[in-house]
């Protein structure tokens, strides 16, 4: 587990360094390798975030699919916000609902909460054990099941495969 965390965090740091410097000189890459090695040894192996992603073909395919779903939802949510703001009568019907998630890993829950915040009309306010409290700008039904169906399901099926 520690080896996996170390390797993944090292690769992430090296990629960040290369993108930041945007140069392919040998000396720059060498300095980047040294710096990311040091930081991965000092901080990377303690961070559970880097060890929780699964490395299989199925997970990667799901990651790509998830990215597209996420971008589509982001654009939809912005058009939604724009229409609500520009509408003179301000059609909102807000409330805080409770939804349930099956995800166990911490990273998966963080990504889920962030995705919920960026999708149409929802904002994750708190997370307690397996329940997420979501501020919904247009509450349709207060039932736990239907809210879960409406808000969480579309991301959860991908994140379950990616993070387990």
């Amino acid at each position: 587990m520690i080896i996996k965390r170390f390797l993944i965090s090292f690769l992430v740091f090296l990629a960040v360094w290369l993108l930041l410097t945007s140069s392919l000189q040998a000396s720059s890459i060498l300095v980047g390798v040294v710096v990311s090695l040091i930081i991965a040894l000092l901080f990377g192996i303690k961070a559970e975030v880097f060890g929780e992603i699964k490395l299989s073909l199925k997970a990667i395919i799901n990651l790509i699919a998830y990215t597209f779903v996420f971008i589509w939802e982001l654009i939809k949510s912005n058009i939604d916000v724009a229409l609500r703001v520009l509408n003179p009568s301000l059609p909102i019907n807000p409330g805080i609902v409770k939804v349930k998630t099956r995800l166990k890993s911490k990273t998966g829950r963080m990504v889920l909460a962030n995705s919920i915040t960026l999708t149409p009309g929802t904002l994750s306010i708190d997370i307690k054990d397996e329940f997420l409290y979501v501020h919904w700008i247009d509450v349709k039904d207060c039932d736990l099941q239907c809210a879960t169906e409406e808000i969480v399901k579309k991301f959860e099926k991908y994140l379950e495969v990616i993070y387990g």
Partner: peptide, 13 residues
């Protein structure tokens, strides 16, 4: 809460 919703989503995209 509604302000946070509008602010976050629109400013991110």
């Amino acid at each position: 809460y509604n302000r946070i919703q509008a602010g976050t989503k629109a400013s991110t995209l």
